[in-house]
Amino acid sequence: MKLLKGLWIGFWSGLILGVLLKWVQSVTGEQVYTLLLNVDFIPVIGDVQWSEVTEFIFHMSISLVIGIVFVFLAKRRKYTFGQLVILSLLMSIPFPFLYFLLADLAINADVPAVNDWSAFLYWVFGHLTYSLLLPILYKTFERKNAVSQ
């Protein structure tokens, strides 16, 4: 059950993050969605011209793992919603820093510059949304299961 719950939470959180950043990119022109999906710097994988759908699947795979880890940590004891939010935010500490790393490592992709502060803020906003979705979806899933039992 933990695994399925983690997959469910990771799926929806990752999907919403992807849609949100794609929308931000379409409205602002900031290439934050492109940055999210870019894998051109990864040896072997980066040499292939992947479709957007495949790159999105790569993104979703990472989100599924994060969802599973979040659920396994959350199930270790009975956390309040506030404690779940703190847990999620602690797990999310690397996300803002990934902006700089991914922007710097990009080879061919048209991604924001490392010092593009508006793109950075969109990135942080999107990932903060993602982080808050983890505990919200966790509690939603718990309530849904409690009703059905």
Rank of each mutant, 00 (worst) to 15 (best):
M1I: 13
L3M: 11
L4V: 13
K5F: 10
G6L: 08
W8Q: 01
I9E: 01
G10E: 02
G10A: 10
F11I: 09
G14D: 03
G14R: 00
L15K: 01
L17S: 05
L17W: 01
V19K: 06
L20P: 01
L21S: 04
L21G: 01
K22F: 11
W23H: 09
W23F: 15
W23D: 04
T28W: 13
T28Q: 10
T28I: 11
E30K: 14
Q31T: 11
Q31S: 12
Y33K: 02
T34C: 04
L36E: 01
V39C: 03
D40V: 07
F41S: 03
V48W: 11
V48A: 10
V48Y: 13
V53C: 05
T54G: 05
F56V: 05
I57R: 08
F58S: 07
H59G: 06
H59F: 04
S63Y: 01
V65N: 06
I66T: 11
I66K: 01
I66N: 05
I66Q: 05
G67E: 07
G67K: 01
I68K: 02
V69T: 10
F70L: 12
V71C: 09
K75E: 15
R76D: 10
R76C: 07
K78P: 09
Y79N: 14
T80C: 05
T80N: 11
G82Q: 02
Q83T: 08
Q83K: 13
V85Q: 06
V85C: 11
S88I: 05
L89M: 08
L90W: 08
M91F: 14
P94R: 11
L98E: 12
F100V: 14
L101G: 09
A103N: 04
A103C: 13
L105M: 15
A106Q: 05
I107P: 00
N108R: 15
N108C: 00
N108K: 14
D110Q: 12
V111N: 01
V114I: 14
N115H: 09
N115Y: 08
D116Q: 11
W117G: 00
A119H: 03
F120W: 15
F120V: 12
Y122S: 04
Y122M: 13
Y122F: 15
V124A: 09
F125E: 03
H127T: 06
L128S: 08
L128D: 03
L128G: 09
Y130H: 06
Y130D: 03
L132G: 03
L132W: 02
L132T: 02
L133S: 02
L133F: 08
L134Q: 05
L134T: 05
P135K: 07
I136C: 00
Y138G: 00
K139M: 06
T140D: 10
E142P: 02
R143G: 02
R143T: 06
N145C: 08
N145S: 14
N145W: 10
V147H: 07
V147Y: 12
S148N: 14
Q149S: 11
